[in-house]
Nucleic acid binder design. Structure first.
Lengths: 134, 134
DNA sequence: ATATCTGCAAATGGTTTGCGGAGGA
DNA sequence: TCCTCCGCAAACCATTTGCAGATAT
């Protein structure tokens, strides 16, 4: 059977940090933020709690090309936009498209449970900056 | 200016290995296969060439939740299906949906260049096995 | 009461890199 | 020729883990 999950001060603060940002931070950034509230929290504890919260379905781990993971405090499935200029990862306010899953099931015969969709390009702000430069 | 890329025996064989499979292998698997043809090839060379081929646009690096990367010998953008039972990653024969990008541009104002779409579920074969067991 | 969690520090493991020599263009 | 690539082995670095004591339930 699966292990029970306890709520500790460390876990609660890590969850609050993730809920309070939309920046999809790295474990290290979460660690730096958490140290402001618990100065002697350890990086190992941050990693343990991030995995723990992931198991609980409270947060999501995002794995991109970089060598490290990013974490998302919004556990609901949603799409992301990656700006190739400034590197930010932005949440998209766009409904989940179940038709895509239906399309795969019909053409391939596999049973689809979920999907993940990531867009890459140049965000509004970087576009404006580029236009000014020209 | 960007570095020039040379063709070597090692690079050619690594590319052939990737072109000859649809299994999205790890660097280590490519290394094992390459050793059959060049017994004293080093793992470092495999990694260097995988990165090199990626820069050349000949292959793609796929980054999933696992701690290691997988490589795809098909550099054309295409969608993947991940079987949660057997762990395989399968290519989907499905056209790239540009409407999704248009949808994001209209609703968010970002300029979209490309997107990546990954499906998760149970593949045909695993579905059949499960039905037999019941 | 007791199983889970913590800080600490060492280990892990996929990937990268510095080196001197080899080889492609 | 000359610049890139090679094999080798050590370094790198994000993440995990073993330990002994602390804490949540």
């Amino acid at each position: 059977m699966s292990k029970k999950h306890r709520m500790t001060k460390q876990k609660r603060i890590i969850m609050e940090i993730l809920r309070g940002t939309t920046s999809h931070p790295t474990a290290d950034w979460v660690y730096e933020q958490a140290r402001k509230q618990i100065p002697d929290i350890s990086l190992g504890t941050v990693y343990r709690n991030l995995n723990n919260l992931k198991e609980m379905g409270e947060i999501m781990e995002l794995c991109y090309g970089s060598s490290f993971s990013r974490y998302d405090g919004n556990p609901e499935n949603h799409y992301h936009f990656h700006c190739l200029e400034c590197g930010r990862v932005l949440d998209l306010d766009m409904p989940i498209n179940r038709d895509l899953e239906k399309q795969v099931e019909e053409s391939s015969g596999h049973k689809v449970e979920r999907h993940r969709l990531e867009f890459y390009g140049v965000c509004c702000e970087c576009n404006k900056k580029k236009q000014k430069q020209e």
